[in-house]
Computed example of a mutant assay.
Amino acid sequence: MISGLDHLQIEAPPGHEVQARAFYGDFLGLSELKKPLALQPNGGVWFALPGGQQLHTGTVPEFSPRRKGHPCFRSTDLNAVLVRARRFGIEVQEDAQLAPTRRVFLHDPFGNRLEIVEGEHVTVLV
């Protein structure tokens, strides 16, 4: 019934677009997508993810960052992510709970929690 993931949406405060472009575009290297004209007055920014999915930022008037729920991005080179994060002044928390799988946690400029895993999580069906 479900054929895949189309997009995920990250909530952000009003007026967040410049910071979103700097973080998701410049730091993470995602390409910006043109929002449909009908949705442009709502604010927010859309980005392309590898594999054809999208990441949308959406404006929430009474915004509260997500501290637990989070998207997880994949990387082929977590060391490169760490070097880039230092260059951009972004704090990253390395996590070894799933060793040998390498992963880190960080926050976007709005305080939303994000995870980046090297490779992918091991999948075991029940």
Rank of each mutant, 00 (worst) to 15 (best):
P71N: 12
R87T: 14
L98W: 04
P109V: 09
D77L: 09
L55Y: 06
R87N: 02
F63I: 13
K68S: 06
R103Y: 09
E91W: 00
D77F: 11
L125D: 04
G89Q: 08
L98N: 09
C72I: 10
L106N: 09
F105V: 09
R66V: 05
E118K: 02
R74L: 14
G69Y: 01
N79I: 03
I116H: 02
L82K: 02
Q93T: 15
N79P: 03
G69I: 09
A85M: 06
F63V: 11
L106G: 02
P65A: 15
P61C: 03
A96I: 02
I90E: 01
E118Y: 07
H56E: 07
R86C: 07
A99V: 03
H70V: 10
D77E: 08
R74W: 07
G111L: 15
E91C: 01
C72N: 12
I90R: 04
G58M: 08
K68V: 14
P65E: 14
N112P: 00
L125N: 06
R66A: 15
E120V: 06
R67F: 06
P109M: 10
V117Y: 09
F73R: 05
P109F: 07
C72H: 03
P109S: 10
V122F: 01
G119D: 03
R67L: 15
L114K: 06
R84V: 06
T59Y: 04
V124P: 00
P65H: 13
A99M: 01
S75A: 13
A96M: 05
D95G: 05
R86F: 00
R113H: 13
L55K: 11
F105D: 05
R102H: 07
R103H: 14
R102E: 05
H107D: 12
S75H: 04
R87L: 14
V81M: 07
V92K: 01
G69R: 05
L106H: 11
E91N: 02
D108F: 03
E62T: 04
S64P: 00
E62Y: 08
P109Y: 11
E118H: 03
F105M: 06
N79V: 09
Q97P: 05
I116D: 12
R103S: 07
G69T: 08
F88L: 12
Q97W: 02
V117W: 02
V104G: 06
Q97R: 12
T76A: 13
A80N: 01
E91A: 12
R87G: 00
A85G: 04
S64T: 15
L55P: 01
T57Y: 02
R103Q: 14
V122S: 07
R86T: 11
D95N: 15
H56C: 03
R103E: 10
R86A: 08
A99Q: 13
R87A: 15
R102W: 12
E94M: 09
R66C: 06
I116G: 10
E91Y: 00
R87W: 04
I116P: 14
E62Q: 15
V122L: 02
G69A: 13
L98C: 01
F110K: 01
S64H: 13
V81N: 01
L98F: 08
R102C: 10
R86K: 09
F73W: 15
F63R: 15
V104C: 08
R84C: 05
G111M: 14
P100Y: 03
G69K: 07
F73I: 11
R102P: 13
A96S: 14
G119H: 09
S64Y: 05
E120W: 09
R87D: 10
V124S: 00
R74F: 14
K68L: 14
H56K: 05
L114I: 13
F110S: 01
T123A: 08
H70D: 11
